[in-house]
């Protein structure tokens, strides 16, 4: 018996697409490497262990929040306008930080405050899920409204002030070291590994990506799409809750303005797609992207380039990445 399909009839088109995909991925890796090399030679102190740890620490908060966004993208697709997005994730982290800090200040202790922060994050995520899955509001708008609510609640809790926090947990997170590596970095490593497992080595992850990749196909295969979208938003909320504690640890306080992280978080999650073979959001890709953005910020700092340029460079990166991937997908 002969094979039914000997080869793709449109091989030419596919080869073209695969080549441009490859070029983009290589470009991303080479670009990253070149920038690191450039900094290594020009920025004094860039390669010192202290500075490299610093980069990882700087990237931790951004990275974990971007993982949350990555989960949402995985479960709802990267067409941010029609698919899914979580604009509330940074504001959510801010709210969780406020909950944590205010409870600590009120003397409740970590055993109450930490779970309370995590639960707050998940509740906000569940609200997003409810709006998107049950009410079928466009995710862009639903999470925008939720972002407003979360920001308002954060301001209400903290009255727009810095709420200082002191606790052994915060000290450990901020200053602790294990095997010569800071606790913050360890958290990043552990969260990354756990999420790589969930997203790429578990049944749940495979189905989540199926839902985001082609909702109809997933439904036809018997996947209950709604619960995966819910799960993605709640997962993002949980990660926001976790991040909030790291934010408090790094600043020793809950500080207004966490919502400002939204744009770098989006940039990291979108930039991450160019590091993946399939040009889709992956945990590994987002990890690299977060490190990339952290490296850029750090290198700029060392080179004395004004921090004014950071957001502009991030914006340009988003545009380049999105234009390049849409070009690769259409060619």
């Amino acid at each position: 018996m002969t094979a039914i399909a000997d080869g793709p009839p449109r091989a030419g088109a596919h080869r073209g697409r695969n080549i441009s995909k490859l070029v983009i991925r290589l470009g991303a890796f080479v670009g990253f490497a070149l920038i690191v090399i450039y900094f290594a030679f020009t920025a004094r102190g860039f390669t010192t262990p202290y500075n490299l740890t610093n980069i990882v620490e700087q990237s931790t908060i951004l990275g974990i929040l971007a993982y949350g966004m990555t989960l949402v993208f995985a479960g709802t697709g990267t067409d941010v306008q029609r698919g899914g997005i979580d604009l509330s994730i940074a504001a959510n982290a801010g709210l969780c930080a406020a909950v944590y800090a205010v409870l600590m200040r009120a003397g409740y202790g970590g055993y109450v405050a930490v779970p309370a922060a995590l639960v707050t994050g998940m509740a906000v995520g569940a609200l997003n899920g409810f709006a998107v899955v049950a009410l079928r509001i466009m995710p862009l708008l639903a999470t925008l409204a939720v972002m407003n609510i979360a920001e308002g609640l954060e301001l209400t809790l903290t009255e727009n002030t810095v709420v200082a926090v002191n606790s052994p947990l915060i000290d450990t997170l901020a200053f602790g070291r294990f095997l010569g590596i800071s606790t913050l970095s360890w958290v990043f490593v552990i969260v990354s590994l756990a999420l790589i497992w969930i997203a790429h080595y578990s049944r749940t992850g495979l189905r989540l990506y199926a839902v985001g990749g082609h909702a109809e196909a997933a439904r036809a295969a018997g996947v209950r799409n709604g619960s995966y979208v819910y799960g993605a938003y709640i997962g993002a909320g949980l990660l926001a809750g976790l991040t909030s504690i790291l934010i408090v640890a790094r600043l020793s306080s809950s500080t207004p303005g966490t919502g400002q992280m939204l744009l770098p978080v989006l940039a990291a999650a979108l930039l991450g797609t160019v590091f993946s073979r399939r040009l889709i959001p992956t945990i590994g890709g987002t990890l690299l992207a977060a490190l990339f953005i952290g490296t850029l910020a750090n290198g700029f700092q060392l080179l004395g380039i004004s921090s004014y340029w950071v957001s502009g460079v991030q914006g340009a990166l988003i545009l380049v990445v999105v234009a390049a991937t849409s070009f690769a997908k259409n060619s």
Binding site: L206, G213, H214, A217, A218, A220, A221
Partner: peptide, 18 residues
């Protein structure tokens, strides 16, 4: 052809029976 375009052949074959 209801298949997830970004999934591999193996993943598509074993979706929901992994």
């Amino acid at each position: 052809r209801l298949l997830v375009p970004s999934a591999t052949v193996a993943e598509s074959v074993f979706l929901r029976n992994e």
